[in-house]
């Protein structure tokens, strides 16, 4: 005698566990990532193992290898940059400025800028370095 097996409905895929996985991935990427505005030009910071850990926050000035400047991801000329920094400084006296300079940028494009920032009253300027070359 042949017994007819009752056809069962196919088991529902558990979507709920998939949501859990994606949620964990989402939280992981939110924690690991750093939300920075990227400069409109190529910047590969100089390599050094003597750097200290970079705190989050602050304002980022990017310097390209040809001396082009960008403030928080937007290309800007030097006078406008200094005016903007003065504005930011008026709003927040303890401004933290990170200079993300290309490793091949000439120091004539960097050091006078640091001097100008210091004269403008910025008390905390750091140079971004990377511990391992890209």
């Amino acid at each position: 005698m042949k017994l007819k097996r009752r056809s069962q409905p196919p088991p529902q895929e558990t979507i709920v566990s998939l949501i859990d996985v994606i949620f964990f991935l989402l939280v992981f990427f939110m924690l690991v990532g750093r939300m920075d505005a990227t400069a409109p030009f190529e910047v590969s910071p100089p390599v050094s193992t003597a750097g200290e850990s970079l705190p989050k926050g602050g304002t980022t000035i990017a310097v390209a290898d040809n001396g082009a400047l960008a403030l928080d991801g937007e290309a800007i000329e030097r006078p406008a940059l200094l005016a903007r920094i003065a504005e930011l400084l008026a709003a927040k006296p303890h401004l933290f400025v990170r200079i993300n300079a290309h490793g091949e940028a000439r120091l004539t494009n960097l050091l006078p800028l640091v001097t100008a920032l210091e004269q403008a009253g910025v008390g905390d300027v750091v140079l971004v370095v990377t511990p391992n070359p890209a």
Partner: peptide, 10 residues
């Protein structure tokens, strides 16, 4: 996801 460090200038 760049691993960045810093050097103080001012």
């Amino acid at each position: 996801y760049l691993d960045l460090d810093m050097m103080p200038m001012v």
